[in-house]
Amino acid sequence: MESSQSIVLGDVEIFRVVEWQGTLMPGTDLLPDTTDQTWRDNTDWLEPDHWEPDTGLVVGAIQTWVLRSGGRTILIDTGVGNGRERPSRALFHHRHGDFLNRLTQAGVHPQAVDLVVNTHLHGDHVGWNTHDVDGQWMPTFPNAQYLIPTADDTYFGPTGGYAGGRRPDDRLIYEDSITPIHRADQAVLWDDTYRIDDNLTLESAPGHTPGSSVLHLESGTDRAIFVGDLVHSPIQLLHPSCSSCLCLDPHRAATTRRRILEQAADQRQLVIPAHLGGSGAVEIRRAGTNFTLGEWAATPAAPR
Rank of each mutant, 00 (worst) to 15 (best):
W65L: 12
P300Y: 06
L215K: 02
E47V: 10
R286C: 03
F291K: 04
P142L: 09
P139G: 11
P234M: 02
F156L: 02
G127H: 14
R16D: 08
D152Q: 07
E175N: 05
G97V: 11
S243E: 08
V59H: 15
S4K: 14
S233H: 09
S4N: 09
D11K: 10
V66E: 07
D192Q: 11
H96A: 05
P110A: 03
P110N: 05
A287L: 03
D41C: 07
C242N: 10
P158I: 07
T289E: 15
H208P: 01
G27W: 13
S213T: 04
I74E: 01
F226S: 02
G164Q: 09
S204T: 06
R84W: 15
Q186H: 12
A281H: 05
N42V: 06
I74W: 06
H275V: 12
P149Q: 09
V113S: 09
L217H: 04
A264G: 13
L24P: 01
S88G: 10
P210K: 04
V58R: 00
G228M: 02
V133R: 15
T209W: 08
W296T: 00
H94T: 06
T193Q: 09
E283A: 04
I14L: 13
R258P: 01
Y174A: 02
A287K: 04
N118K: 00
P142G: 09
V113W: 14
W137Y: 10
N199R: 03
T73C: 04
F15Y: 06
G164T: 07
V231N: 02
P149L: 06
P142Y: 13
A184G: 07
